[in-house]
């Protein structure tokens, strides 16, 4: 079994924390994994993506081929749209609905959401609002990870919770619990969709 995930967002939004938790869970579960990251100039407020590949068999390419991504997970709706040529025909898009408008020509939101909703499998949720609702406003990325866990067949959600505990453990129990809460809220909201 394999799962290819494109994580997308804007530099500074925190996609690498999502990748780190998934990576830690995958390592614990004994899966093969490759995770290509973006560093350097591109990080400065530009579009960023990470290619995350999980498999029970060895993986060759660090990059996901076009048409092979099982999931596009994005902290920003326009950024989700940017990578659809990589999405497999039955692939899922799990995206935040809140735009990050740091460019002058950001397309109208109804067009962005319209284009996304034309795709067959989309979970679009306001992760910022859900994070606030559960009292973890700084854990929007874990809400998105929770939503992803609902369709991420290759990893057990409990392994991801353990991953959150390992990654955030050194920041204290309070931070860990806020992130777990955000994760659970994201998981539940995606299940409702």
């Amino acid at each position: 079994m394999k799962q290819d995930i494109i994580l997308a967002g804007v530099g500074g939004q925190g996609i690498l924390s999502i990748a780190t938790v998934i990576g830690s869970a995958a390592l614990e579960q004994g899966l093969h994994l490759k995770q290509a990251e973006v560093h350097g100039m591109s990080q400065r407020g530009g579009d960023v993506q990470s290619n995350l590949r999980l498999s029970s068999d060895p993986i060759y390419s660090d990059l996901i081929p076009r048409g092979a991504a099982d999931l596009i997970v994005s902290l920003e709706p326009l950024e989700a749209l940017r990578y659809i040529p990589y999405l497999a025909p039955e692939g899922w898009i799990i995206t935040n609905t809140v735009p990050f408008e740091n460019i002058p020509d950001y397309p109208p939101m109804d067009q962005v959401m319209g284009a996304l909703n034309k795709l067959p499998r989309v979970i679009a949720i306001d992760v910022d609002a859900i994070a606030k609702e559960v009292g973890s406003p700084r854990s929007a990325n874990m809400v998105l990870l929770g939503a992803t866990a609902s369709v991420l067949g290759i990893l057990d959600p409990d392994k991801l919770r353990d991953g959150i505990r390992r990654i955030f453990g050194r920041k204290g129990e309070e931070i860990v619990e806020a992130n777990i809460k955000a994760f659970d809220a994201g998981f539940a909201s995606a299940r409702k969709k």
């Binding site: 579009d47 048409g67 326009l78 940017r82 040529p85 460019i103 067009q111 319209g114």
Partner: peptide, 20 residues
């Protein structure tokens, strides 16, 4: 042959890096 997928969206705008 290329794998089947979706055509690039027409609703896109570039997001180049910028000074913080």
């Amino acid at each position: 042959p290329a794998l089947p997928t979706f055509a690039p969206s027409q609703v896109l705008a570039p997001r180049p890096p910028a000074l913080c």
